[in-house]
């Protein structure tokens, strides 16, 4: 069981690294915002898995907050790009 959790965490770390490279390279504002969105989603899943590793029920609330509030920044940036803010 522990090996599976380690494999999952390392795969997620590689996903975060690749999308961060896209954030640095991306030629456009929309590309960087997509990278931020992907990083937020992977971070939410990582928070839930780390909460399972620590065996504390209260730790899952942080992932809940990220799932509820993480997309507001992306929507505000999109409205700014559209010129409608």
């Amino acid at each position: 069981m522990t090996t599976i959790i380690y494999i999952a965490l390392i795969l997620m770390a590689f996903g975060m690294l690749l999308s961060f490279i896209r954030f640095v390279k991306g030629p456009n504002t929309a590309d960087r915002t997509v990278a931020l969105d992907t990083l937020t989603t992977i971070g939410t899943a990582a928070l839930v898995l780390l909460g399972y590793m620590f065996h504390r029920y209260i730790y899952v609330d942080v992932a809940l907050i990220y799932a509820v509030l993480g997309f507001i920044g992306v929507i505000v940036i999109a409205r700014y790009l559209e010129g409608a803010l």
Partner: peptide, 8 residues
């Protein structure tokens, strides 16, 4: 708190 304030 950091998630709520820093992200949004």
């Amino acid at each position: 708190t950091e998630a709520a304030i820093g992200a949004a």
